[in-house]
Amino acid sequence: MSEYIFYPGCSIESSAKAYYESTMAICKPLGIALKEIDDWNCCGATEYLSLNLTPAYALIGRNLALAEKQANGSQTVVAPCSACYLNLAKADHYMYEDKAFGEKINEALSAGGLHYTPGKLAVRHLLDVLVNEIGLDKIRAQVSKPLAGLRVVPYLGCMLPRPDYGERYSDSEHPLEFDELLQALGAEVIDFPLKTACCGGHMTQIGPDTAFELIRRLIAAASESGADVIATVCPMCQMNLDAFQGQMNGYFHTHYKMPVLFFTQLMGIAFGEKPEKLGFGQEFVSARQALKRIGVEVPEAAPAAKKPAGLPMPSPLQKKPIGTTEEASQ
């Protein structure tokens, strides 16, 4: 049994429940025990750093301090969200590298009776732990239903491979670890040049036209490469590419229907877990047709809304009402 300290992050409890469910489903057969940090708080995403650096790092520091205090055996914190992972890693990195800064954050933490020893914990993303610690051999051994014939885009996004304080990835722009993991599941992995390009991040909320272009670029490239599905490692990437795909289609008058799943959902399928336990049906663009190709029946996503789905997000630049999401090929 490999034990890890687990930092779930806020999204996994709201918009990315499918990620949580599928993560839990694959950890069991791999002998991974995730021990959640008791009373963890939000990492502040990219927003608190923009407003006020010291409280932003102190907010992250509270999680590290709690994790250090609660650590029982394991010294590794695992986060499934790329933004949470990077924030935790960033705080640890700068507190360690810049002593005066570390002392300042600890002075803030001391107001709450907490302290973090910089460098004490290793902060890692779930993908990194699966590939580099558990190992592909162990993962391959669990595969009972290979994803043979399923063409998958290994989409990593930004914050996992960059800036990579722990130097865990083979490259900051074109790393191969994710490809190898999906290959171990038997999938046909597409060599995707945009695998670490930006999903739009918070631009969906503050500059929709820029966000739609970044989403289009990824969805179009995946579609042109003949992909059945995009695999993601981050709740924000999944949300932007999936939930905003309809609005993006409306903005550009396109008709893409590219399913975007969490990689753990695909791992679960390959491990022979029941699709019902893997959060299928929560995605906006249904993955049902794609998985049918390899003989897997997953629950249908809820009936498509007349309006494209997404956060209650305005699209002031839309040229005409959307609602035409019929598949172009049909």
């Binding site: 708080n41 010291t54 907010l59 933490l109 107001a111 709450g112």
Partner: peptide
Amino acid sequence: QLKKILKRAKELE
């Protein structure tokens, strides 16, 4: 606890 930490952090900033 978090509020105390953030208050102190803002003073330090």
